[in-house]
Design a protein around this nucleic acid. Structure first.
Lengths: 341, 341
DNA sequence: CTGTTAGCGCTTTCAT
DNA sequence: ATGAAAGCGCTAACAG
């Protein structure tokens, strides 16, 4: 069923059919003609050929979602929340989303991010620096919003969590619970996210007249196993540490495991606070106090921005800006209140 | 950059450019011309307009993946494995995949599953009967493979787990560990999956001269909470039950919770065997013996079938058939060996 | 080996 | 309010 066939069936021209099937031109066709056409459309269950439409309009009505596609990452619920957010805001907008999975960086080159090509807009998750190649981002020619981590000098919209705030919140929670000798387990050095968390934490700490022993800020590369060692090192450096701020739930999980191995207990002997509010980790250690990052909302916002930009075709140039959404503390039972003792 | 512009730049015709950019026609172009063209392509970073190509070839080079998109479901790792499987087999095939999320059934009507329209093929997950609307499936005009659950009379390819086998394996495991008084917690009555599991279990049981008290086969609607009640009912019916086969890990989790509440222990006091080998549940109850369903492989196979069918354009008609992949026991520590006592 | 040409199905001026 | 016609960028059949 093409538009031509429909024209023949109804005895009008293809132009009229076209007007009838496009919401914004429907009013230009007479009511009775419309009726006739609609009936025929239903009768022959006609649907327009999108490729033709896309070609003609140089747009695809789909926005691409780029995420790294490795087992470990993907199985965290993080991207599920992310996809839900995108999906739900796109629903009913007339836009679809297409998942562009990103195995190796080289795959980027296969995509050509021009308008009307494959996608009209893009939401890119740059959780891992590995993938955040400026050269690639600069090639993109459609409105893009970057999630999670960004390149300072690339002009795109960025939406992320306010991790300075997160670090601050963690610090405050520990501080208000009477902890003074604390340690931090952070991620790899390139991780801007972790830097921010640590920064926020330290800022609070110093503002309250405490000094943080820099030897107690140890990295564990986002790795659960490495957190074991990090914990050992911390304990060796200062056996009297009462709390550990882990920049990632996965590393917190490592600490919790190690703690169990060593037959000491959390929070009685030592407090732990995580970051990410990771569903999976939370299933294993349902008592882990953590900082929740609003991925779902981030995704929603990202999709909304792109939608708005696409609909108001005023400016051709890509928008830019950064937005940091507040994170919040999820208090569970892994932090001991020392003050009340 | 269009093909015309490239033709002008290189001084050849658009036909030659077209030949050069399509792998299967490259050999028809002279080596030196090819060189010249390739340089120009790179220089101007030309990429063909997919909409035009799709229109011309009536194909989209993308296959659609339809999954229900509700928070609870989506956050189980099940669909992550599923997507990984699809993604990985599609990688390098020239096909992309597009995630079609399915909120309300009505959304189906928005999609028009004709070849060259939006997708060239379809992988549909019908985990929930709710979504499996025959009318809709029959509308689909591209090669389709259905995953998880199927309509008996709709002619499509189906790939699922062999759940009769799964039930059998569970039964055998319990039996060989000396259990004779057992109960089953099953899903909602419409669930074909659960029916099969129960069927397999019962078949084994009867083959070994045992009779299964039908009052001990209770439903819990796939719900964790309802499994609490189901457990209570079982215990009330027969306090001497030694093992429970749960048709779903999520229901097993409910049982495990209830057991803990009642201050009895698994497997010492009662054995539990789950089904699905659910990552999330396994994080919480790492000792739960369960039946693993090879989702990843199912997805791979589904993608492969579609790919094959698409590449050999011999038959236009959709293929059909059913394939049940073997499931396997993942033995952990929730089943007590009564024989060795 | 290369070029010319038709046309995929649609939207959109421009006439009427 | 409707129709005629151009053309989006590409591939494939045909001719040379």
């Amino acid at each position: 069923m093409t538009i031509h066939e429909m024209a023949k069936k109804t005895g009008v021209s293809i132009a009229t059919i076209s007007r009838a099937i496009n919401p914004h031109t429907r009013e230009k066709v007479a009511a009775d003609t419309l009726l006739k056409i609609d009936q025929a459309l239903k009768k022959y269950s006609y649907t327009p050929n999108l490729a033709a439409r896309n070609l003609r309009q140089s747009s695809t009505q789909t926005i691409g979602v780029v995420i790294p596609f490795y087992r470990d990452i993907f199985y965290s619920a993080y991207y599920m929340h992310f996809l839900s957010g995108v999906s739900n805001t796109l629903e009913g907008s007339g836009y679809q989303f297409k998942l562009l999975t990103l195995g190796q960086e080289q795959k980027w080159d296969h995509y050509d991010f021009r308008s009307g090509e494959q996608v009209d807009g893009l939401i890119v998750s740059l959780w891992f620096r590995y993938f955040s190649n400026r050269r690639v981002l600069e090639k993109i020619k459609v409105p893009t919003v970057v999630i999670d981590d960004f390149e300072e000098d690339v002009k795109t919209m960025f939406i992320g969590g306010d991790h300075v705030l997160g670090g601050r919140i963690a610090a405050e929670h520990l501080y208000s619970h009477g902890h003074r000798r604390v340690a931090i387990i952070t991620g790899p050095s390139w991780s801007r996210d972790c830097q921010q968390r640590v920064k926020g934490f330290q800022a609070f700490w110093e503002q309250h007249g405490e000094t943080l022993n820099q030897d107690l800020v140890v990295g564990a590369d986002y790795l659960q196993d490495k957190a074991h060692e990090a914990f050992d090192q911390i304990i060796k450096t200062d056996p009297k540490v009462t709390a550990i701020f882990c920049c990632t739930d996965i590393m917190a999980a490592g600490v919790l495991e190690r703690i169990k191995e060593l037959n000491i207990s959390c929070p009685q002997d030592i407090s732990v606070i995580g970051y990410d509010d990771d569903f999976i980790i939370n299933a294993r250690f349902p008592y882990l106090t953590s900082i929740h990052v609003p991925v779902y909302e981030m995704a929603q916002k990202a999709a909304q921005y792109i939608l708005e930009h696409l609909k108001s075709k005023k400016s051709k140039k890509l928008f830019a800006g950064t937005e940091f959404l507040p994170v919040r503390l999820i208090e569970r039972q892994s932090v001991m209140n020392l003050s009340s003792v």
